[in-house]
Nucleic acid binder design. Structure first.
Length: 207
DNA sequence: TTGTAGATAGTCT
DNA sequence: GACTATCTACAAT
């Protein structure tokens, strides 16, 4: 079932990010339904977060949507090629967001492959934030989309990863700030093929 | 299978 | 005008 607005309105963005693991991210454009199970997320803790576009209270045309009430899509362009999909959370005026970094294709695989220009399913589909939006057909034009509508939304189908399978790690690219680097703001499914392969995984993954 | 190098365009100062 | 951020491809083991 579709997640209610109250899910996104909670103040603790880390809790929301963790609970998004295992949920279904669904898009429906032009009658093309595609869905993927979320296996990797990253929390962005508003103005106190250096990695956030809203760090220090920056309020620009691009980041404006993050300050709105939770339950919206925030999409921005990275490297001029990759569209990164975020879920806006929290209340009005609080720029919290959760970046979806990895999904496992569940429904509409054919359509995803078409978008990825691939012939068959492999681990690259849905791995990495750029590929997530690519597979689901999300672009910057969808920034500000209401997740309570039937275009982009998140649903809970009752699937649960085991407690041990979900682990937290420091986020990527924040080693310059010793304190912030230790913050467990990244949530991944341990050993999942769709989770971004990164040096931090090996470094912080005992297994 | 793993590591490394190169590419891109919109946003902010 | 400078900055930022990730995927793909290729080469070596």
């Amino acid at each position: 079932m579709q997640l209610p607005a109250a899910f996104y309105h909670r103040k603790n963005v880390c809790v929301i990010a963790k609970e998004l693991i295992g949920k279904l991210l669904i898009t429906c454009f032009s009658d093309q339904l595609t869905a993927g199970r979320i296996v990797e997320t990253e929390a962005y803790n508003g103005v106190a977060d250096k990695a956030s576009h809203a760090y220090g209270g920056r309020y620009t045309n691009r980041t404006e949507v993050m300050y709105r009430t939770g339950g919206l899509a925030y999409v921005y362009l990275c490297y001029g090629i990759h569209h990164l999909f975020n879920v806006v959370t929290g209340t009005e005026g609080v720029p919290h967001a959760v970046l979806i970094r990895g999904i496992e294709p569940v429904y509409g695989v054919e359509t995803m492959l078409e978008r990825m220009k691939k012939l068959k399913l492999d681990h690259a589909v849905g791995r990495g934030p750029g590929n997530v939006s690519k597979a689901l057909g999300i672009s910057v034009a969808h920034s500000g989309t209401d997740l309570l509508e039937k275009e982009i939304w998140i649903a809970d189908d009752g699937y649960r990863f085991t407690k041990d399978a979900i682990i937290t790690t420091p986020r990527i690219g924040v080693d310059y700030a010793a304190e912030d680097a230790l913050l467990p703001y990244r949530f991944i499914v341990k050993g999942h093929p769709q989770v971004t392969k990164h040096i931090h995984n090996k470094k912080y993954n005992p297994a």
